[in-house]
Structures are given as C-alpha cells and as structure tokens.
C-alpha cells in the first residue's frame, strides 16, 4: 500500500503490485475477498427486494381482480423499451469491466458514458410512466381515485374493461403502492449507481485504473447487473402476467 509500484524490501518480501494490501498473501486472494464481500452485500439486497416480492405475491393472491385491473393500466411498450435499455446498459457495463481488465482506458471511458446515457434513458422513460400515473390519479396517498376502476372508460378502438365492485376497486391502491415501492426502490438503486458511474468516469479519465487496480469497477459491475436482475423480475410481475385475466 505504501510501498513503490514493485516492492522488493527484503529477501522474504516477494514482488507484488502496489495496490496489494499487506494482509493478503496473493493478488488472487485479495480479489477473491473483495468479490466475496460484494456478493455478501448483494445477498442482503436480494433479501431486501425479496420482502417486497413476497408482499406482492401475497397481496396479488388476496386482491387478484384489483391487481389484474391495476396491471392493465401499465404501458407494455414503455416497459419493454425500458427492459431493452437496461439489458443494453448491463452489456455496456460488462464491456467496461472487460476494457478495465485489458487496460483500455478509452474503451472504459466510452463504456461508462454509454452506461450512464442508458441509465438516464431508463429513468427518463420511468418518469414518463410515473407522470402518467399522476395524471390518471393512480398515485396512492397523494393523488388516488379508485372510481376509474369502477367505471372504466373505453380505450379508443377497444371495448371497455369490466368494472370492479367498489371495495375491490379500492384495493387497486395496494397494487399501485407496491408498484411505486418496488419500481421506486429500483430507480433509487439506479440513481445511486449513476452517481458511482460519474465518480468512476472522473477517475477513469484521470487514469486511476491504468495500473490494473480495478476492484471498484468489477464490484460496481456486479451491483449494476444485480439492479438489472431485479428489473428482469419486476417487468413480468408488474406488466405482463395479468395481461389476459
């Protein structure tokens, strides 16, 4: 850590990169430890989102017609576009990790910028969807009105959906609460991720990763892919599985 790039203090002290901490025997051990720690953090994240997924499953079984009606108000086109955007951003981040591993500074910078742009596009589309919910009075607690589920208006070119009884229509608020909690938590993870991306971008431009000390990039890659996986499950659960009921 405090030694020059290649340290050879004594005969007992073997060569190692300057960023290898002295309590690790080898770089492989240091890498393994960092990766292990990151995965343990991601497991706590799985449990955190898992609680919300479980709540969704249980309430969906209880208030099934309300969840079906709520799900029908989401735009499949916007949801699909966002899924494609996020998967592509995972790909650009994976390429960023590859560029870092093979010490391509330009490629790393480009990958980080592309990942940032795709992340921004995802949040932009998400905010269009949130705005639509606000206009339609589908925001629980702030601006909510269940009457549109009791007397649904016909979409142009489509027959009107059957209305729900008032008590069941009011339970659509539970669907939208879970919708905002889950997509909101996911969006918060993306915002944090984009803050870290900007941090990495500045460091990459300054050449901080050129010496091969790329643990931060590798662990951030794991985080970004985890956020992608959460969306891979949110998309079918919120948008798709109730299409036909």
């Amino acid at each position: 850590m405090d030694s020059p790039t290649v340290a050879l203090h004594e005969s007992t002290h073997s060569e190692h990169p300057s960023y290898q901490r002295h309590h690790f025997v080898t770089m492989a051990q240091q890498r393994e430890s960092a990766s292990f720690g990151m995965w343990l953090f991601l497991l706590t994240e799985i449990m955190f989102f898992g609680g919300m997924f479980t709540a969704y499953l249980i309430y969906r079984n209880w208030y099934y017609p309300a969840f079906v009606a709520g799900s029908h108000t989401l735009s499949i086109v916007l949801g699909t576009t966002n899924t494609a955007v996020l998967i592509t951003s995972s790909f650009t981040m994976a390429m960023g990790v590859w560029c870092a591993e093979t010490r391509r500074r330009g490629g790393l910078i480009l990958s980080i910028i592309l990942t940032l742009i795709l992340g921004l596009a995802f949040l932009g589309i998400k905010s269009v969807e949130y705005h639509e919910k606000w206009v339609q009075h589908h925001v629980p607690g702030l601006r909510f009105d269940a009457m549109s589920f009791v007397h649904p208006k016909a979409e142009p070119g489509q027959p009107a959906e059957p209305g729900l009884p008032l008590d069941m229509a009011q339970h659509t608020e539970v669907y939208f609460s879970l919708y905002f909690a889950m997509t909101g938590m996911h969006a918060l993870h993306m915002i944090i991720g984009m803050g870290l991306l900007i941090f990495m971008l500045i460091k990459a431009i300054r050449g901080a990763y050129d010496n091969g000390n790329i643990t931060f990039i590798e662990n951030f890659g794991l985080y970004w892919h985890f956020v992608d996986i959460v969306w891979i499950f949110l998309f079918p659960l919120l948008y798709l599985i109730s299409r036909h009921q």
Partner: peptide, 25 residues
C-alpha cells in the same frame, strides 16, 4: 518468488466481448 508465480497462475478469467455480446443478444 513462488508467491509471485502463484499470482500469475491465478490471473482472473477474462470473459471475452464475444460472449458478452452473445449473452446480451
């Protein structure tokens, strides 16, 4: 120098861009 050699023996596996592109597709 055996530790240094061990370092080289355990270089991390670098996944190629081709595989990343196939998975993304």
């Amino acid at each position: 120098m055996s530790e240094l050699e061990a370092n080289h023996a355990e270089e991390p596996h670098i996944v190629s861009p081709k595989i990343y592109a196939m998975i993304a597709a």
